[in-house]
Amino acid sequence: MFLPRRTIRSCLKQKVGLPQLSWRLGLWILLFVLIIIPSLYTIDLNLHVSLKPWIHRQPSVSVDSLTSSCFQSPYTIKQLQSPPITPGIPLKNSDECLGFASSIGDSSLLSASTQRDNVWFHTYWIPSNDNMEDHRLGIMLRSFAATHSQGSLMIWVQDGHENALLHSNTWRQAKQHMKGRLEHNIWTTIIDRNNKRKHISDQEDTRSEKMDYIGLLILQQYGGVWFHPSIVFLRSWAPLLGTREWMIQQDCQATHSGQEAALGSQANNHQQTVMHFFANSSILCQLVETMEVSLFGKSSSSSSSSSSTGLVYKDVYHRLMKAKIRPWLILPWCFMNAAGGCTANNLDLFNKPTLGIPTLPPVFALQYNVRQWVDDPDTLLGLLDLSHQAILGW
């Protein structure tokens, strides 16, 4: 922002001092901030002003434990009451979020009407440049088999990678021990049905936008859970697989209104959205159509992404609410990404515990970044895999 020449000349003729010139310059900058910026940007400020604690002390209330006699006996959820899997408020602190996660028990607390046995878990497999894809596949498969007595896994590949998967020693071993609960399929057959193969046929492209779109197409036909292959299961997901569809937050900044940071933001390209939907879901149909407009344009002639997956999810979420349709649930971030919270402890799978496997919080899974891969049996990831091998015997 520059001062007009006339103003500068007048200041020089009148020999205006530096303080007065600075005051006028500041006035122009202030006018620019108050007039120009609000006309270009939408400013949303949510401020909360309160007195410092040393000025105004609030009455002390104990929050460390429950002192009421109501919870002295073992607290259980009645058989006819389906346990909630989403909190009533956003959870930013790890102790609150992990406490809520621990309140979700195993599938024995679910009523018969909400139990679903044969749920398909879908993920994908792509050969990598470091030749460690077979090892990573084994870690994921063993973690699933060790924590899930029910449910089946479907590994999706491109047609050019099918033989590599079927000749993998890890695949053959897992197929033998999982006894019909492990299958594979080719995702290009799903893409062909939607006439989008030519737009996303790059075999090395695993961006969140592309893989989320493929996941939506797969769930639209088969239903179940779509997850990233770098996930390590820590407990059964049966309590989450009731009668509601959901996505999992990627960090604690997300809200139930579909904030972009929650669902596949561009800042977390190594993380695709973990989600659960039913086959032929109306909500899923809307998500697919909106994603196609974002990825390919209205004419389906462009392969460039016009917006992130997070913006797509946010747009559909709000449109559903305006149409008086209940959207999908947003599960708390700590159910899976316990290391991604605002105040969470570091649960990096590549850390090396000094005293074996530490006591892990009651999260359902952890995820690692493939770009930071460390092949070391002494890491938390390696120790967890050894424990799963001991449980399974393979």
Score class of each variant (00 low, 15 high):
313 Y>L: 15
313 Y>T: 08
313 Y>V: 11
313 Y>I: 06
313 Y>C: 13
313 Y>W: 14
314 K>D: 01
314 K>Q: 08
314 K>A: 07
315 D>T: 14
315 D>K: 11
316 V>Q: 03
316 V>L: 03
316 V>A: 07
316 V>F: 04
316 V>P: 09
317 Y>S: 01
317 Y>W: 02
317 Y>Q: 07
318 H>G: 00
318 H>L: 06
318 H>A: 08
319 R>G: 03
319 R>K: 12
320 L>R: 01
320 L>C: 00
323 A>R: 10
324 K>M: 00
326 R>D: 12
326 R>N: 11
328 W>A: 00
329 L>M: 08
329 L>H: 03
330 I>M: 03
330 I>P: 02
331 L>S: 10
331 L>F: 10
331 L>A: 09
332 P>I: 07
332 P>K: 02
333 W>P: 03
333 W>H: 15
334 C>H: 15
334 C>Q: 09
334 C>E: 10
335 F>A: 02
336 M>Q: 01
336 M>V: 09
336 M>K: 01
337 N>W: 10
337 N>Y: 12
338 A>I: 09
338 A>L: 09
338 A>N: 09
338 A>Q: 07
339 A>M: 14
340 G>N: 05
340 G>L: 02
340 G>W: 07
342 C>R: 11
342 C>F: 14
343 T>E: 01
344 A>W: 03
344 A>P: 05
344 A>L: 06
345 N>P: 04
345 N>D: 08
346 N>M: 02
348 D>K: 02
348 D>V: 01
349 L>E: 00
350 F>R: 08
350 F>M: 09
351 N>K: 15
351 N>H: 12
351 N>R: 14
352 K>R: 08
352 K>V: 08
353 P>R: 12
353 P>Y: 08
353 P>H: 04
353 P>F: 09
354 T>G: 09
355 L>T: 02
355 L>E: 02
355 L>W: 00
356 G>F: 05
356 G>S: 08
357 I>Q: 01
358 P>K: 05
358 P>T: 02
358 P>S: 06
358 P>N: 04
359 T>H: 05
360 L>T: 11
360 L>D: 08
361 P>E: 07
361 P>R: 11
362 P>N: 04
363 V>G: 02
363 V>R: 06
364 F>I: 06
364 F>C: 13
364 F>R: 06
365 A>Q: 04
366 L>K: 00
367 Q>V: 07
367 Q>R: 07
367 Q>A: 04
368 Y>R: 15
368 Y>G: 14
369 N>T: 03
369 N>L: 12
370 V>E: 04
370 V>W: 01
371 R>M: 08
371 R>W: 13
371 R>K: 12
371 R>G: 15
372 Q>H: 12
372 Q>W: 11
372 Q>N: 11
372 Q>V: 05
373 W>M: 07
373 W>P: 00
373 W>L: 09
374 V>W: 10
374 V>D: 13
374 V>C: 13
375 D>E: 10
375 D>M: 12
377 P>Q: 11
377 P>K: 09
378 D>S: 14
378 D>Q: 15
379 T>A: 06
379 T>H: 10
379 T>D: 12
380 L>V: 06
380 L>M: 01
380 L>N: 04
380 L>I: 05
380 L>R: 06
380 L>G: 04
381 L>T: 06
381 L>I: 05
381 L>Y: 06
381 L>F: 07
382 G>K: 12
383 L>G: 01
383 L>H: 08
384 L>M: 13
384 L>E: 15
384 L>W: 07
384 L>Q: 07
